[in-house]
């Protein structure tokens, strides 16, 4: 096994930064950001929903970028990075869909709206990436599993922008947009709150990603040690798994 970086390193600092940023973000959301004139208090879910969606999307694409690293180098660590990024993004995406649904219900009266292209595109991207785990689980040989998962991740990452274009064009009319994704036309205090929330969620993603990487890595090293010390035959072989090992 090649010498591997110490994943635990920097984890404490990162966790602290996340807690602080998220606390500040929530304080700003509740006490600083002004109430939206039309939507009132429920609009504040925007500070959770949009950052979750942005971070999940970036995480999916990041998974594709890591997958390129895997195919280029053939090293399993890149596969694991890609896996953890996509896995985390799926969780964040579920959060984004739920918060989006609540927001839609509160402000438009429906749990789901088809005329918001960003939301529809997001659902499609989520549906695509949700097949990542079943695909992995269906391939027994771990090497093949990693390679095929990487091919999938790269194709799926390229799919993200194409899908946005197609869904966008399919909308006969564009819903009057209260807020754009980048927060470009937000009033100052809202904009600041949004950016800090975004930073907090991004940090949360990074921390969780690092935690899972560290956990997986530790388990792998422990297993390798056990196999070496106790002998290969006494350690039970790994069962079927969707996760890289």
């Amino acid at each position: 096994m090649p010498p591997t970086p110490n994943y635990g390193k920097g984890l404490r600092g990162l966790s602290l930064a996340t807690v602080v940023t998220l606390s500040v973000a929530f304080a700003l959301v509740f006490f600083y950001a002004p109430l939206d004139a039309d939507q009132g208090f429920v609009q504040k879910i925007f500070y959770l929903h949009v950052p979750l969606a942005i971070v999940a999307l970036c995480g999916f694409v990041l998974g594709g970028v890591f997958a390129i690293g895997h195919l280029r180098t053939g090293e399993r660590i890149w596969d694991m990075r890609s896996y953890v990024a996509i896995h985390m993004s799926l969780i964040f995406a579920v959060g984004a869909l739920i918060t989006g649904s609540i927001w839609a219900k509160a402000s438009w009266g429906h749990w789901w709206v088809w005329n918001e292209p960003t939301l529809v595109s997001f659902l499609i991207v989520f549906l695509l990436f949700a097949t990542y785990q079943p695909l992995r689980f269906s391939i027994d040989d771990p090497e093949r599993q990693g390679r095929y998962a990487s091919v999938f991740a790269i194709v799926a990452a390229a799919f993200v922008p194409l899908n946005f274009i197609a869904v966008r064009l399919a909308q006969g009319f564009v819903h009057p947009r209260v807020l754009t994704l980048g927060g470009g036309n937000l009033p100052g205090p809202m904009r600041l709150t949004f950016l800090i929330s975004l930073a907090g969620i991004a940090l949360l993603f990074a921390t969780l990603w690092k935690y899972e990487m560290t956990a997986k890595h530790t388990r792998m090293q422990l297993r390798a040690l056990r196999r070496r010390v106790l002998g290969e035959d006494t350690v039970r072989p790994l069962g079927r798994s969707a996760a890289p090992s």
Binding site: P134, S138, A156, L162, A166
Partner: peptide, 18 residues
């Protein structure tokens, strides 16, 4: 894959959406 009859459509459909 083991479940190739499932994996094909389930991965293919969303990819074909655009």
């Amino acid at each position: 894959t083991r479940a190739r009859d499932l994996i094909g459509p389930v991965v293919g459909l969303p990819l074909l959406i655009p």
